[in-house]
Simulated scan of single mutants.
Amino acid sequence: MRIRRAGQNDVPAVLALLDGATEWLVARGWTDQWGTSPHSTSPRRVEQITAFAADGGLWVGTLDDQVVGALAVGAALDYVPPATEPELYVRLLVTDRASAGQNLGGTLLDHARELARAGGVRLLRVDCFAGGDQALVRYYERQGFTRDVEFAVPRVNAPDWPGQVLAQRL
């Protein structure tokens, strides 16, 4: 997989990855993480991914010139408890479900580690959905992260969204 900095023209491909991941979750009856609506139809999500590209923190992984993964890094998002030291925060990690089993996520996380080290940062953090069977939490633990702090994001007309921050020392 080739990793490159993403531009505004990559935003639709990243949204398509998110839409595909949501379709995969919904097909399994797992709607608590991202709901059932496509990300590409959410003005808030389109604005967020566009901002990630604009601030230079969005990266895409490609195979045969097809975008198969995306990584956004930068400052922690507002809903996350702040770190007590300088960090690089993984704001987004998504891969193409059709390419599952190729370690695309692990490769993108390796890129985040390289970016952190190059920036002189010794802490990499990420958050994820902590509901359901906690498979996503366990994925990040297999990638070398340890559980840090739990949090909840309030939602309108729905239970709070359960989150887990995970950290890795570099």
Rank of each mutant, 00 (worst) to 15 (best):
M1R: 00
R2D: 15
R4G: 00
R5H: 09
Q8V: 07
D10Y: 13
V14K: 01
L17W: 07
L17F: 12
D19Y: 00
T22P: 07
W24V: 02
A27H: 06
T31Y: 11
W34K: 02
G35C: 15
G35F: 15
P38D: 08
H39V: 03
R44S: 12
R45W: 11
F52L: 01
A54L: 03
G57I: 06
L58P: 09
T62I: 11
T62L: 14
D64L: 04
Q66L: 11
V68Q: 07
V68H: 05
G69E: 10
G69F: 10
A72S: 10
V73Q: 01
A75L: 14
A75D: 15
L77Q: 15
A83G: 14
E85I: 05
E85K: 06
V90R: 03
L92C: 06
L93T: 00
R97Y: 06
A98M: 00
G101C: 07
G101R: 00
N103S: 13
L104H: 04
G106M: 04
G106K: 03
T107I: 13
L109I: 08
A112S: 05
E114D: 13
R117G: 09
A118E: 15
G120V: 03
L123D: 12
D127M: 01
D127G: 00
C128D: 05
C128P: 08
R138V: 06
Y139N: 12
E141D: 13
G144I: 02
G144C: 02
T146L: 07
E150W: 00
F151M: 05
F151Q: 07
A152T: 04
V153W: 01
V153N: 05
N157K: 07
D160N: 10
D160V: 05
P162V: 08
P162E: 08
G163Q: 05
G163P: 09
Q164H: 03
Q164S: 11
L166C: 11
A167M: 11
